[in-house]
């Protein structure tokens, strides 16, 4: 358990924990079989002219997982909050790990699911908006994680 101080801070005091009633999008990545599972809830400020510029105004998460998984979810939620859809789609798991001052190598693969789960919530939002075409362009959870 060689975690950075940042990881420990986000693990001990996770930001944005919880659920959102009537969320605009909900996304889940991971699997309890692997030991990590996270669900994100987002509220989106819509932009009918340009969906890419729609913004995440509120974000909450729930996580079943190790210390790294909880810290990743917390950090990813902070990074995504207030960002536009196109900005969030550009985020990578490496960005989250970097902002946490690194993760142990074994955790990079199994626990670093935050960005994917948020993107999965965006896919859900776009699908509900009737934009499957845009939703299908977002990667979301990768199958290899399961």
């Amino acid at each position: 358990m060689q975690y950075s101080q940042k990881v420990m801070d986000h693990f001990m005091n996770p930001r944005n924990v919880g659920e959102i009633q009537n969320a605009d999008g909900v996304g889940t990545c991971g699997n309890p079989v692997c030991g990590d599972l996270m669900t994100f809830y987002v509220k989106i400020e819509p932009r009918t002219d340009n969906l890419d510029m729609a913004r995440i105004t509120e974000i909450r998460f729930k996580t079943f997982g190790c210390g790294a998984a909880i810290a990743v979810a917390s950090m990813a939620s902070e990074m995504a909050k207030g960002k536009t859809l196109s900005e969030v789609v550009d985020l990578s798991r490496d960005d989250v790990a970097d902002n946490l001052d690194g993760l142990p190598p074994v955790k990079m693969h199994c626990s670093n699911l935050g960005v994917q789960a948020i993107q999965e919530a965006l896919k859900d939002y776009l699908t509900k908006m009737g934009r499957r075409d845009l939703a299908s362009k977002i990667k979301g959870c990768s199958k290899e994680e399961h």
Partner: peptide, 12 residues
């Protein structure tokens, strides 16, 4: 409903 390592860290 809870994962072991996170409990260990909290206990630690």
């Amino acid at each position: 409903y809870v994962e072991g390592e996170s409990m260990l860290l909290q206990l630690d």
